[in-house]
Design a binder for these strands. Sequence first.
DNA 1: TTGTAAGCGTTATCAT
DNA 2: ATGATAACGCTTACAA
Lengths: 339, 339
Amino acid sequence: MATIKEIAELAGVSRGTVDRVLNKRGAVNPKTEAKILEIAKALDYKPNRAGIVLAAQKKKFKFGIVMFGIGNPFFDDVIAGFKEKEEELSGYNCTVLIRRISAFGVDDQLEAIDSLLKEEISGLAISPQNDPSIAKKINELYDMGIPTVTFNTDISGSKRIAYVGSNYYKCGQTAAGLMHLMSSGPLNIGIVSGYSQILCHTERIAGFKSCLEQYTNLHVVDFFENKDDDFISYEKTTKMLTDHPEINAVFFAASGTYGGCKAILAANREKNMKIITFDKIATTVEMMKRDVVSATICQQPRLQGTLPLQILFDHLATGKPPKQEYNYTSVEICIKENI
Amino acid sequence: MATIKEIAELAGVSRGTVDRVLNKRGAVNPKTEAKILEIAKALDYKPNRAGIVLAAQKKKFKFGIVMFGIGNPFFDDVIAGFKEKEEELSGYNCTVLIRRISAFGVDDQLEAIDSLLKEEISGLAISPQNDPSIAKKINELYDMGIPTVTFNTDISGSKRIAYVGSNYYKCGQTAAGLMHLMSSGPLNIGIVSGYSQILCHTERIAGFKSCLEQYTNLHVVDFFENKDDDFISYEKTTKMLTDHPEINAVFFAASGTYGGCKAILAANREKNMKIITFDKIATTVEMMKRDVVSATICQQPRLQGTLPLQILFDHLATGKPPKQEYNYTSVEICIKENI
DNA sequence: TTGTAAGCGTTATCAT
DNA sequence: ATGATAACGCTTACAA
């Protein structure tokens, strides 16, 4: 409603002075400053986003994206989110550069960031290795005036301005709650993880286990790591089923779901098996439709692409910090019927 | 990237002419028109939203909202969505007027719309009675240049420009799928509806029943209507449990969940009872925490408030029809752990 | 049929 | 310390 122009007229000063006060740029006579602030408050002044964005248009924003997970179909959905937002922001003079990395190496990530720096990016979205050297690099960018938003996984000790992604612990708890609801009597559970160093896998399992004393019919009888590989998953699942004929539930906390399900089918053990997985990739959807996977827990992959870019854009356009530092995606339970 | 100004320069005409071509206002020489369109396509011209919105600011938009459900806490969350968007749009010279109606009468709705018309609203969001007289009124507004968006429930035969709300049929199917997952052995189900005339209740039940031939262990053994009233719900649930000692599952397709659950508790039948409800109102959350309600299916109430206003604003600001006519909220399964 | 110019609200540069 | 002014991209009333 109230505009800078109106405030300027009421205060008997120019728009420039009002702008200086409201956005804390340059020095202003304390008395006029007080007057302006008073009027602004009285009129409940709120900056007009359209005006801000239009003015910001003189700059051209270039956003860089660094993500791992080549060959991991989950990230395809995240990319779709990036593309969608790129399309939207292209109308605002913005461009987007994506660097997708295959391996999990820290050096590869650092290299990717440097290559983006050479392109003179104005902001960075990254799914980071939780390593001090990455944090240091993020802080360097911060000091250069280049903000960073993390997505999917967070990093400690860095000046990234926001995180967008799952609350993995809560996801694990939800899996346990769901297991309990699907049970009538004792459930002997095999847990499948990917890597013991990957935070999202361990957190999911920690969340799951935190519910076990409440749900006393749930028993974890075996556990293995599949390195996110379907073939390892197949072999180790086969062995687990042989070793533990009593297993009637499997909790896949990582990738390799397809291989594991194939093993369960091959062993003819799918009938009364309760299987909970994560994410809604094509192979998992197939296993849901075949009634092998009971439910899968999703983490809004598309939003993990769109929101980081939106946050960067808003921050650069307005100069203000994001409303939320932690932007948790919601824990979505998907079954065959509500895919 | 490309702007009207650039296109004008390249085509050797003025900005006004380009605007006329791109937005189909006024007549333009076919030859220059073709030339302009060609250049626009070559440059992949996309209008800049910030510019459009800023220019639209000369008008002041006033939005009217008509909804029923006083005393229905579900709609409090929808209102919260309206308030949130009102706050956001207030920075764009927009105001919002809400008319909340207690009864389900058609005349009350018509009256509310008329009172909003006197306020000279520029757009309407309504949760309509599915009645021809309402449709007629919506069409009158349409002809006056006032667009309408329906939310929560839709109306047939009207020129409303979009609908935001649940796919109730799919919700019912999801409830059935969930019942099946939670079962081991036969489930004897009592279904509780609200009104046989209310589409959302009947659609949920139709969706539920559509899955019964697939899930042969699910049997519907009783059914009643509670007029969305907790006390009726209590009494009739009590009777149902007495009449059917074999009932071990209840599907609440309407309101009155709290009364029904109280009856189940009073009858000491909650232990092996599978209960599925809709929406995440306070009393239902309480029953979930007490492990009485197993799961509740939600329909993004907040989005049902924010999106209609956003659609109206976009439509009035840009003059273009919404991208989607049907904006279905997602079918969210909520259990104790992922509330 | 086409061009001109002012205006939407904010930012930024330059002058005072 | 403050004011004046142009610019961002689009719309629109008016002039030619």
